[in-house]
Simulated scan of single mutants.
Amino acid sequence: MAKQFDSIAPDHRAFIEAQHMFFVGTAAAEGRVNISPKGMDSLRVLGENRIVWRNMTGSGNETAGHLKQINRITLMWCGFEKRPMIMRAYGSARTLHPRDEDFDALNALFPDEIGARQIYDVQVDMLQTSCGYAVPYFDHVGERDTLKKWAQDRGNEGVSAYWAEKNQKTLDGLPTDVLGDGNDA
Rank of each mutant, 00 (worst) to 15 (best):
N61H: 11
M87T: 02
V159K: 07
M126I: 07
L46N: 05
D184P: 01
D121G: 11
D139W: 00
M87G: 01
S160C: 03
R83N: 14
Y120L: 15
E48Q: 13
A29Y: 04
R88G: 09
W53A: 09
I16A: 09
K169I: 02
L43S: 04
P84W: 11
E17T: 04
Q152W: 01
G142Y: 15
P98E: 13
F110D: 04
P111H: 13
D184N: 00
G47N: 14
L147I: 15
V45I: 14
Y120E: 13
D153S: 14
I8C: 13
A9Q: 10
M40I: 07
A27F: 08
I73Y: 04
L179R: 11
F138G: 05
L171M: 15
N34L: 03
K82W: 09
R50F: 10
F110T: 06
I51M: 02
F103H: 09
H66Q: 07
P37T: 15
V135Q: 04
Q118Y: 01
E30D: 08
Q128H: 09
D145R: 08
V45T: 01
D121V: 12
V122S: 05
D102T: 04
E30T: 12
T146N: 03
K3I: 08
W77R: 00
A185P: 00
A28Q: 08
D100K: 01
A27E: 12
D121H: 09
G142V: 15
L109N: 04
N71K: 07
R44G: 04
L75E: 12
E143C: 02
Y133R: 07
A29Q: 06
G58I: 03
P84C: 02
D177N: 15
M87D: 02
Y90F: 15
I16D: 06
F15H: 11
N167A: 12
T63F: 11
L67F: 08
D100V: 10
I86E: 11
E113K: 08
F23V: 00
D11L: 06
S59Q: 07
D177W: 15
G79K: 05
T129V: 08
G39V: 10
G132K: 05
A164W: 02
H140D: 02
M76C: 14
V135F: 05
G132V: 11
L127S: 06
I8Y: 02
W163C: 09
Q152V: 10
I119S: 11
Q19T: 05
I51L: 06
I35S: 15
H12A: 12
D139T: 08
V141K: 15
T129G: 07
V135R: 04
H140N: 03
A14L: 08
L96I: 12
G115H: 05
P111Q: 10
D11W: 11
N107P: 03
V52G: 04
W53D: 08
C131W: 10
S92P: 02
H12L: 03
